[in-house]
Simulated scan of single mutants.
Amino acid sequence: MVKLNWVAGGWNTPYTFKGVPHSVNFDSLESLMETMSKGEWVTDSKGNRIDIDLRGICLK
């Protein structure tokens, strides 16, 4: 099992959830990667898209 973790804080996050840690469980890294390939992306602080090696990051 692997977990995707994040801290809520986006523009559409209700005030009561801002800064609150969240996580979602996945059965495998492959199932996480499959979910993340449905249109999500990572951006830097300036809004530039970043390509990441999710497998490499998660296996460290």
Rank of each mutant, 00 (worst) to 15 (best):
residue 44 D to M: 10
residue 39 G to F: 11
residue 42 V to Y: 13
residue 28 S to P: 04
residue 23 S to Q: 12
residue 11 W to N: 09
residue 28 S to N: 04
residue 42 V to M: 15
residue 48 N to M: 05
residue 57 I to S: 01
residue 56 G to T: 01
residue 6 W to P: 07
residue 18 K to I: 14
residue 12 N to S: 13
residue 50 I to S: 03
residue 33 M to P: 02
residue 22 H to L: 09
residue 23 S to T: 10
residue 43 T to Y: 12
residue 14 P to C: 10
residue 5 N to L: 13
residue 24 V to I: 14
residue 9 G to R: 03
residue 42 V to K: 06
residue 44 D to H: 09
residue 12 N to F: 13
residue 50 I to D: 03
residue 45 S to I: 14
residue 59 L to W: 00
residue 10 G to H: 11
residue 42 V to L: 15
residue 41 W to K: 14
residue 58 C to G: 01
residue 46 K to I: 05
residue 46 K to F: 10
residue 17 F to L: 15
residue 18 K to Q: 15
residue 13 T to Y: 06
residue 26 F to N: 02
residue 33 M to W: 04
residue 30 E to M: 02
residue 46 K to W: 11
residue 46 K to S: 10
residue 34 E to R: 04
residue 28 S to I: 05
residue 40 E to Y: 15
residue 9 G to N: 05
residue 53 D to W: 00
residue 13 T to G: 05
residue 37 S to Y: 08
residue 11 W to G: 09
residue 6 W to F: 11
residue 41 W to L: 14
residue 30 E to R: 03
residue 27 D to G: 12
residue 54 L to C: 00
residue 45 S to M: 11
residue 55 R to L: 02
residue 50 I to Y: 04
residue 47 G to E: 07
residue 49 R to V: 07
residue 43 T to L: 08
residue 41 W to S: 14
residue 8 A to I: 06
residue 23 S to G: 06
residue 19 G to Q: 02
residue 14 P to D: 14
residue 14 P to G: 10
residue 32 L to K: 00
residue 4 L to D: 09
residue 2 V to P: 01
residue 30 E to S: 10
residue 48 N to L: 05
residue 19 G to E: 04
residue 28 S to K: 00
residue 20 V to F: 03
residue 31 S to I: 06
residue 58 C to I: 04
residue 29 L to G: 01
residue 59 L to I: 05
residue 31 S to C: 03
residue 21 P to S: 06
residue 46 K to N: 10
residue 37 S to V: 07
residue 35 T to D: 13
residue 15 Y to E: 15
residue 38 K to R: 15
residue 25 N to Y: 07
residue 60 K to F: 04
residue 22 H to R: 13
residue 48 N to V: 08
residue 47 G to K: 05
